[in-house]
Structure formats: C-alpha cells, structure tokens
C-alpha cells in the first residue's frame, strides 16, 4: 500500500497500461516535452522518457488530435488523449460526438473505438473559460461512456478500466483534487489521496460508490461535490441527521441500482452539482430518480447547483458559484425539517 494523490495514481495507471499493452499511447498538448510539465497537471510527467514515441505531443489542435485518436482507435490502438482544460472539449466535440460515439452504430456494429479522453474540470480561479463543468454536455451522448473520479483509488482503477474498455470513455478529473505538486500545485486543493494497493486492479465504469451509509437522506455528488457532500454529511451527523453519501462516479450510464437502493431507504434526495442548475446532469438524475423511484420519495428531489451564470473570476463570487458543504447541508436540513 502507498498513499497517492490523483495525479500520481493516474500516472501509475498509464504507466502500467502502457507496459501491459503496446497499443496504448498518450496524445495531447505539452504532455511529454522534456523539461516540461507532463501535461497541464503533471499526470504524464516523466513518461516520455519511459515510453519513447508513445507520449505524443501535438500542436494546439484539440479537434485535430481528437480525430487522430479516434482514427487510431478504429485501427486497434488504444489512445489516451487529454485536453489541458475540459473547456477545450467544445473544440474536440465534433470528433468525439459525431465520430467516436456514432461510428459503431453507423457501421452496424462493425467498428470499435477504444479510446479515452481525459478532461480536467472545475472552477479554480481561472475565470470563465478554464473552469466549466463539462459533464452536462456529454452525458446524453449515446455511444459515449462518461465517468468522473473523486479520489486516487478510483482514478487509477477507473482509468485502467477505461483503457481496457472497447468504447470511447470520457474521463473527468477535478483540478482541485489532483494533488499536483510543485509549480503545478493548485491553491485551494482538497485532499483526494487514497491508499493504493500493490498490483493490478480496476474499478468498474458503471458503478456508483456509497461513501457513507445513512438512513435519513441521500446526498448525491461527483468530483468535488462528492467531497463536499461528505463534509455536509459530517455536519448533519452532529445535528442528528443521518445522511447517506453516494459518489455517482459513473455519469453515463448512471448506476440506478445503487442510487435506487438508497432512495428506497431514505426517501429523500439532495443532488449537488458544480455547474449551472439549468440543464445540468442533476436535472437528468432527478428526472431519472423520479421516474424510477418516485413512489419511494417522501419529498421531491432537491438540487444544489451553481447559479445560471458563466464561472466568475473574483474569489468571492467563485466561492459562491461552487456549492459548498454548508449549502448542501442546508438543503438536506430543509428537506427533513421543512
């Protein structure tokens, strides 16, 4: 066992997968430059020396290198592409949505596109265009799997599972959770380290994780909101409210089995989402819960999400934009006590 942060765990996952399978390679901007950063958040630091020719630095061309990853994957390679900031996925989205996600269907099942696209998200003092929570734009894309990791154990196990999956997998990471060190350390970072076991393991791409068991209310979150929900549950516990916390983790498809078991038990749901409330992932999740488990709900599902605004820069507004534990706890408290 060793204690690792997400950046280190992802690096180990990539190293192990590239060692195991010669068809795995990495492609992205500034990921393998000697003397560089190893990607925007150090995930691929040092790998270009270990794997010559397989850590491919690209021009600044997100649409282009995403298409290159799709084409290589169709020919049997297993590319791990990454964008420096999730916001750049808008540039890449034609290749991701029109080609990667649809190629199998359009070909009548003849084609597989085993690629991973990693994307850091989250509001972190960078203003509006290096900050968005991009999950909402991709969770409803048939043919694309979407996951979001909140700790190092999952980061390693889910990335390995994503690399081995025969479908395109969009892999979200949060900038405050990397635990990147040195010049790439992130102010306001949250501890997302885990005890990482020796040896190979994977974590399924379609299972939510119960992080805390409880009987009174179900708190759902992912990425940073999984941490904030857990902190809220701690607060609520001190008030005699027993909250269950689920790290949704798999955003497409949702794990309604795990979520449903909790809803049946508690009858109350608070969904926390970083990102505008209107049209968010939590909207789909709330509707899905209502359709499937409506008769078990004692109260309507509540969402705690950001205001319907672009991500602001100034810290006082950014901190308000990002749902915190206090807001999540307040929503749960109101749901129970009225």
């Amino acid at each position: 066992m060793k204690r690792q942060g997400i950046a280190e765990a992802l690096r180990d996952a990539i190293t192990e997968e590239m060692t195991r399978d010669p068809s795995v390679f990495c492609i992205g901007e500034d990921i393998g430059v000697p003397g560089g950063w190893g990607g925007a958040f150090t995930v691929t630091l040092g790998l270009s020396e270990k794997f010559p020719g397989r850590i491919i630095d690209t021009p600044i061309a997100e649409l282009g290198f995403t298409g290159i990853a799709v084409g290589a994957a169709m020919m049997g390679m297993r590319p791990i592409a990454d964008v420096q900031y999730g916001d750049f996925l808008f540039l890449a989205s034609d290749q991701l949505i029109n080609n990667a996600a649809k190629m199998r269907y359009m070909s009548g099942g003849a084609i597989t596109v085993p690629m991973v696209m990693r994307a850091p998200v989250g509001a972190t003092g960078r203003g509006s265009q290096h900050a968005q929570s991009m999950e909402r734009y991709f969770t409803g894309v048939p043919g694309l799997k979407v996951v979001a990791v909140s700790n190092a154990y999952d980061a390693k196990g889910m990335l390995k599972a994503a690399v081995r999956d025969d479908n395109p997998v969009l892999f979200f990471e949060h900038k405050l959770l990397y635990g990147s060190k040195g010049a790439r350390a992130e102010p306001g970072a949250v501890d997302a380290t885990s005890e990482i076991p020796e040896g190979d393991y994977t974590v399924p791409l379609d299972k939510a994780a119960v992080r805390r068991e409880g009987n009174d209310v179900t708190l759902l979150g992912w990425l940073l909101m999984a941490h904030n929900s857990l902190a809220a549950a701690g607060t609520l516990g001190g008030e005699g409210i027993d909250a269950e916390v689920i790290d949704v983790r798999s955003l497409s498809p949702f794990d309604y089995e795990t979520i449903g078991a909790s809803v049946r038990k508690t009858g109350r749901v608070v969904i926390a989402e970083e990102g505008p409330k209107t049209g968010g992932v939590s909207a789909e999740l709330a509707a899905g819960i209502a359709e499937r488990f409506g008769k078990f709900l004692k109260e309507p599902v509540v969402r705690v999400a950001s205001a319907d605004v672009p991500v602001p820069f100034t810290p006082i507004l950014e901190n308000d934009y990002r749902p915190d534990a206090a807001k999540i706890a307040a929503a749960a408290r109101k749901l129970i006590k009225g």
Binding site: L63, G64, G67, I68, G71, Q95, M106
Partner: peptide, 25 residues
Amino acid sequence: MVPGIAIVAGGIPLAAGMALAFKMR
C-alpha cells in the same frame, strides 16, 4: 472503407489517426 463521414472535413483528422496507427505498428 470507413463508413462515410458526413461532417465536412470530419474524416481528415480521423484518416491521419488511422495513418498514425499504421506508422506506429
């Protein structure tokens, strides 16, 4: 033959990616 890509120029990066796979292998 890859199924036709009907987004104009959508096949260009994709073909480059196929060629990258040929080159790497």
